[in-house]
Design a protein around this nucleic acid. Structure first.
Length: 465
RNA sequence: UCCCCGAUAGCUCAACCGGUAGAGCGGCGGACUGUUAAUCCGUAGGUUCUUGGUUCGAAUCCAAGUCGGGGAGCCA
């Protein structure tokens, strides 16, 4: 137990007459020269702040009030009382006021009034002190807890897959290179090939773009596993839904087919949203009111209704019959454009959609080939506003076909010798998928930009902090 | 990476046809015995993103660059 009380607790069930010690940061100060002041104190334990009434009789009142402003950190000892004012059940009447640190109002960047998210991104070290980012952090935390709960309660093993990898070309995105070689010296020796045998790992290494291949090895031994860690893509992506560093949850299940995979994905998404709705009502009410009107309705709708499931081919037919003038034509064999996905999930079905059985030419080598020879057992979960939130598939467990698909994709099977051995020794049908954590935070909070759904976003030209 | 848009006070923005910059908020000073983005009065605050060009004169027009936003692609 801490020697002080967290504000969320006081607001929830603090009883009038109780003596408390609270510590936090001043959000606003409303001063009356009549001899008292109101402080809004926030310590991150809840969305709402605590109103503290500081009477002129509190020791050091005049000196404290002269300097105290938004952003200052304080300790207050006082008594909980019923609040006569509107907007709060209880408040604290201070008996003592101790200042830990002042925040010069002339230079402190956060004002009482709202700031643009662009501005706050440049103040990533201070933005958690704002309503929006405090709420985002609590929702993100609740989501992470819900994710672990979901898998732990189903007996899945949490497996840590490597962040540094030497399997180049895992099939998704560009790798950030990891090296201890002296790049300046190499640059001076232009024209000569780089000798990676001299590098730290003895070969070219990079940051992982997916833990899937390694997760498969544990699924093919222990049954149901999941990874939950950072993922890196060195793509020059400049959009509201891409990050160079993001977090991904990748469950991988032995003896699952595509249908089992879809069932898990759907109950997963619905379950974690349900948990966050229950755990973060105040934060979500704020997002619903100030960030994305209609958010709560749309989240409840997702929780309470089945996802629509259809094949890629059926999706293409719906799009072609829609009569909608798309910027890009819909043609079987081409990947669906954002506008197509959005039409399906936002206009046609108005709820999450799981698309399956994509053309094999546009999907990764590890996805299981269908008997028709044209499609693979892939699945994408599409949600309104965000688009793709999950990508997954039943994996190709037949060694000969897998090798054929690698060659088809221009990969050298020798580089994947250990992955192929999973199929040579005791191969099993299995499936899995990847859920983007930040896209889920976007979905749940209604935040427009994924850069505001992670504490310190990494995007092209941005790795400050 | 491509397309479009933008960069002016601490923040959000305005400034007509090219004539040396203005508001709200915030800050500071003052008023107010219960406020809730408090209110009211006063006040200070500017290398108009950078470099170059056109012009008697550029925040304004042109070029390049940098950074930011939206859309697209890549995907989660």
């Amino acid at each position: 137990m801490t020697p002080f009380t967290r504000i969320g607790r006081i607001l929830k069930d603090g009883q009038p007459g109780t003596q408390v010690d609270v510590r936090g940061w001043v959000r606003t100060k409303r001063e009356s020269k009549g001899g008292f002041a109101f402080l809004e104190l926030n310590d991150g334990s809840s969305f709402a702040s605590l109103q503290v009434v500081v009477d002129g009789g509190v020791p050091g009142y005049a000196e404290s009030m002269k300097h105290l402003g938004t952003g200052a950190s304080v300790r207050i000892e006082g008594e909980i009382k019923e609040s006569p004012g509107k907007g709060q059940r209880v408040e604290v009447h201070a008996k003592t006021l101790e200042i830990y640190g002042l925040a010069d109002p002339a230079t402190y960047p956060l004002q009482k009034k709202g700031h643009s998210f662009e501005f706050l991104r440049e103040k990533a070290h201070l933005r958690p002190r704002s309503n929006t980012f405090g709420a985002m952090a609590r929702v993100r935390n609740a989501l992470c807890a819900a994710i672990h709960d979901f898998y732990q309660s189903r007996g899945f093993l949490y497996v840590q897959t490597p962040i540094i990898t030497t399997s180049d070309c895992e099939g998704a995105g560009q790798l950030f290179q990891v090296t201890t070689l002296d790049l300046a010296r190499l640059a001076a020796k232009q024209g000569e090939a780089v000798d990676f045998s001299q590098d730290f790992f003895g070969k070219k290494a990079g940051l992982t773009v997916s833990g899937q291949l390694e997760a498969e090895t544990y699924a093919c031994a222990l049954g149901d596993v999941y990874t939950f860690g950072p993922t890196f893509r060195a793509e020059n992506s400049n959009t509201t839904r891409h990050l160079a560093e993001f977090w991904m949850i990748e469950p991988e299940m032995a003896f699952y087919d595509l249908n089992d995979n879809m069932n898990l994905a759907e109950s997963f998404v619905r379950s974690i949203i349900k948990d966050v709705l229950a755990k973060c009502p105040d934060d979500l009410a704020f997002f619903n009111e100030r960030i994305e009107p209609g958010l709560l309705d749309s989240l409840h709708h997702i929780v309470e209704n089945d996802f629509v499931r259809l094949t890629y081919t059926e999706g293409v037919e719906i799009l072609q019959k829609s009569g909608k003038a798309f910027e890009y034509p819909v043609e079987w064999g081409h990947d669906l454009q954002s506008e197509h996905e959005r039409y399906l999930t936002e206009e046609h079905f108005k709820q999450p959609v799981i698309l399956t059985d994509y053309p094999r030419a546009i999907k990764s080598f590890y996805m299981r080939c269908n008997e028709d020879g044209k499609t693979v057992r892939a699945m994408d979960v599409l949600v309104p506003r965000i688009g793709e939130i999950i990508g997954g598939s039943q994996r190709e467990e037949r060694p000969d076909i897998l090798v054929e698909r690698m060659r088809e994709s221009g990969l050298n099977p020798d580089d994947y010798w250990w992955y192929l051995e999973l199929r040579q020794y005791g191969t099993v049908p299995h499936a899995g998928f990847g859920l983007g954590l930040e896209r889920t935070v976007q979905l749940v909070t209604g935040m427009q930009n994924i850069r505001d759904c992670i504490p310190f976003p990494r995007t092209p030209k941005n790795a400050e902090f």
